[in-house]
Design a binder for these strands. Structure first.
Lengths: 348, 348
DNA sequence: GTGAAAGCGCTAACAT
DNA sequence: ATGTTAGCGCTTTCAC
């Protein structure tokens, strides 16, 4: 079934068929109907490859993910596909599968390994995509590792200051301040913090927010109760264990962990010490990962709008393709995060 | 940059360039080198659309997922992409987003809603894919809802007996028997079971396996200790609560839930009753969802090889495209599942 | 071993 | 308003 067949059946030219399908030119109602009938009758579907070749538009948007198993990735894709289903774009998915190769090396290694993969993968897209959304696994600065491909690129969940990319990330600082403020408002004064890897951007921003709230409340953050974790659950466990031992004479009444994993690790340690959450010690997480509702008690945490990030990224990508000048204005958007109050913080 | 440009630079015909790129015909080493140089120099990438149009092969495989937020979906995609990265296929992802529209209606509604979406979505693929992998969200029979599109279709995580589809699912019965046997081997005699929705295929198969092991051990399953859940965590909680009340004079020493969610719900109820897992009551789950390692104690469960399902599905799809006759032999594969022993089952 | 050229299915400029 | 036709970038037959 080609456009030619339809033209024959409807007794019109191929141009006319094209006009009615795409609405590019007015067509006499009668002929238009004949075309429509022919299409309905045959179930004809235009060959997208031919169309793309001719129009130089693939109608595909490339979604390049660092790893689909990253906890944030599928929600971001969900957001992208939510936006895309109302457009006529399709998603061409390419998984870099970085998790297997770099495990927990976060910032390290990535650089090299990445650069290669990236170049390779992006190039592989040939003329298959009109824009690409790069979906990061960590909130970090990847400036310089994504080369210009002459097509719109928007980075989701990471940033870069390369002139040829846009990005959409989420808010860390304000929400961390808000989380800390919530703890303070609940009457906590001695609040421990379990940080993420100290040199990472989110750890720094979250600390900034925490400090802000502390200062604002006229309190001070005793350095004895800030412990450096590495984002993993185990580190939360060990940090808390240390805290429990070292500060046993002056136990904090609450602990804020920079992510849910460490918060849960901390809860393990608290329970192991025969203490209760939140009666003895309150716990605050960050990320609102799926597991935060599965632990008991359910974790109070901050939610990152992952789906919104994907949705916005898709929106930006499409706007950029439209050559929309306004789209170029706001290149880097930061979505608000919000507090999710559950059961691990007590009012004292 | 087109093939013509390369031909000009290398001072050969476009045909020759094509020959060296695709290795379709022998080319004099000297000319071949000139072509290779020109390509390297310019960073030329063949236009896939043109190639596809000409060869009538898109080199895309369509991945149609019921919902990317389904707990099994991303692992399956991971498996697909693992296989695909070593081939020259790309993944065209289409998310039906069924979760939003049908919530927990599992089998119901799906039928209608699905059929529409399916037809729509599949057709939308136009000539964009050479095969499609349909990724289900539940292990169920979807016979009749996927129409023939004249291209290979393989169904992952669901089945259908339509002649035009293949499928790859996982093993339920043997592994359920094995799980039950493990409980029995640990000395448990009075074992409660919390079932999934009774009319669903996995619930029936899992029950079959459980019964098998019970019979084999010369025990009987007291119907007083089998409770019907609905796959959700809450139902596990309520089933266990009932059990704890009704059977308080003859408490089971172990409970097997047909999925991790219900197992975790059961653990909640056990804890709430002041009892301990596994000291007082052992718990066995099914699915090995991410959360099963986050609860405390870590859940003993059965793992479904999700990644393997995706990998195998991709393999089958590609084999089918090759017109491989052997591929048509084995149309429905069932991957083995395995027991994951963790900390919720005690030896008594 | 290599090149000329036809043609995949479509769109759009141009002619009518 | 509609038809004719060139050509998008590639592969492949056919002739040399």
């Amino acid at each position: 079934m080609t456009i030619k067949d339809i033209a024959n059946i409807a007794k019109v030219s191929t141009a006319t068929v094209s006009y009615v399908i795409n609405g590019t030119k007015p067509v006499m109602p009668e002929k238009r109907q004949r075309v429509l009938d022919a299409i309905a009758q045959t179930g004809y579907q235009p060959n997208q490859m031919a169309k793309s070749l001719r129009t130089k538009k693939s109608n595909n948007i490339g979604v390049l993910v660092e790893d689909i198993m990253g906890f944030s990735t599928s929600s971001i894709i969900d957001g992208i596909s939510k936006h895309v289903e109302h457009s006529d774009y399709n998603i061409l998915l390419n998984d870099l599968r970085l998790l297997d190769s770099l495990l927990n090396q976060y910032d390290q290694i990535v650089q090299q390994k990445d650069k290669i993969n990236k170049a390779l993968s992006l190039l592989r897209f040939g003329a298959r995509v009109d824009a690409v959304i790069y979906v990061g696994m960590f909130d970090r600065d990847i400036s310089g590792i994504i080369t210009d491909i002459g097509k719109p690129i928007v980075i989701a969940y990471s940033t870069a200051n390369d002139s040829h990319t846009c990005s959409v990330t989420y808010e860390n600082e304000t929400i961390s301040a808000e989380a800390m403020r919530y703890l303070i408002d609940c009457g906590h004064k001695r609040i421990a913090v379990i940080t993420g890897l100290a040199h990472t951007a989110p750890a720094q921003m979250r600390m900034q927010g925490i400090l802000e709230a502390v200062k604002e409340a006229g309190l001070v953050l005793d350095s004895a109760v800030v412990k450096n974790g590495d984002w993993e659950r185990e580190s939360g466990y060990f940090c808390m264990k240390d805290l429990l031992e070292q500060e046993k004479d002056n136990l904090p009444t609450a602990v804020i962990a920079m992510n849910d994993l460490m918060a849960i690790g901390a809860m393990d340690a608290i329970r192991e010490a025969g203490l209760q959450v939140p009666q003895d010690i309150s716990v605050m997480g960050f990320d609102n990962r799926e597991i935060s509702t599965f632990v008991w008690p359910k974790l109070t945490t901050a939610e990152i709008d992952l789906k919104g990030i994907g949705f916005t990224a898709a929106q930006m990508a499409i706007a950029q393709m439209g050559g929309n000048e306004k789209a170029r204005q706001e290149q880097h958007v930061v979505l608000p995060s919000r507090l999710i109050i559950r059961d691990t913080v007590a009012n004292i």
